[in-house]
Amino acid sequence: MIAAAGRRVGAGLLVLWVAATAAYVALLAAPGDTVDSIIGDGPDSPLIRSQIIAEWGLDRPVILQYVDFLWRAVQGDLGRSYLLQRPVTEVIGAQLWPSLKLALAAAGVGIVLAVVLAVTTRRRWARRISSVSELIVVSTPPFLIGIVLLSVFSFHFGLFPVSGDRDLSALVLPALTMGLPIAGTLAQVLRDGLDRALDEPFAVTARARGLRENAVLVRHALRHALLPAVALLGWSFGVLIGGTVIIESVFGRPGLGQVAVSAVSSGDMPVVMAVVVFSAAGFVLVNTVADLAFLLIDPRLRRS
């Protein structure tokens, strides 16, 4: 048990290290001169340039800069934004909550919708209709779902604000936009899992005890169906992070996605790196949660 936990932590750290290194390599490979990026539109003179080089330690060997970067990253310092001249942790910290709020709401929408759909649409026609809608939702680019929702609910009916993050009503459409593709995929996986579980001998035994079909479904089959769904947690996290990047732009919301896109287009590499490292950390965290959930659901995986 301890060895397994140790391995998991080790693997997580490894992923973080690779992510940080990849980000650093990207920084080195990025086009343009670092000094230019830092100066941006500000005053430019040889003196300022040499000051910048001294201040950022740009004259030292690359490997030393890399080790220094890692060392500071371990201490929670991911550097300073070239453009905003503030520590990136601060820049990201300020935008974390709006994104997190959106991601959590979307995950909630996705999971609840998926379970409800998979469990309630067992009959032939309901099932077919639900499967087809899932296929459509999964095959639609998320930003398009956002645009359609916007044009129907905001422009046509005027029910929800078009953009911004003022109150809860502004969260509804973005959360739905991100939650729907997750719900679509999860519902498919859950339905397959339910089908498979209901074909198992233990389902026959359960029915032979006089259980209602619904009780067999909820008390027995659902737990089995959750296992493959839990395996998708890591994937859903990717969808959520990737989703924030695009959805925040569609709905004009502040958040990490906006920070990432503007950092990419303006070459503010420390911010890009920080976003990458942050999301890798999130991924590791989510996968650890998934592993724990597996243990919780399936006793066969627990080693006594």
Binding site: A11, L14, A22, F237, G238, I241, I246, S279, A280
Partner: peptide, 10 residues
């Protein structure tokens, strides 16, 4: 594994 840790879009 490490590559999959990045969301596709990112």
């Amino acid at each position: 594994d490490a590559l999959s840790a990045f969301p596709l879009v990112l």
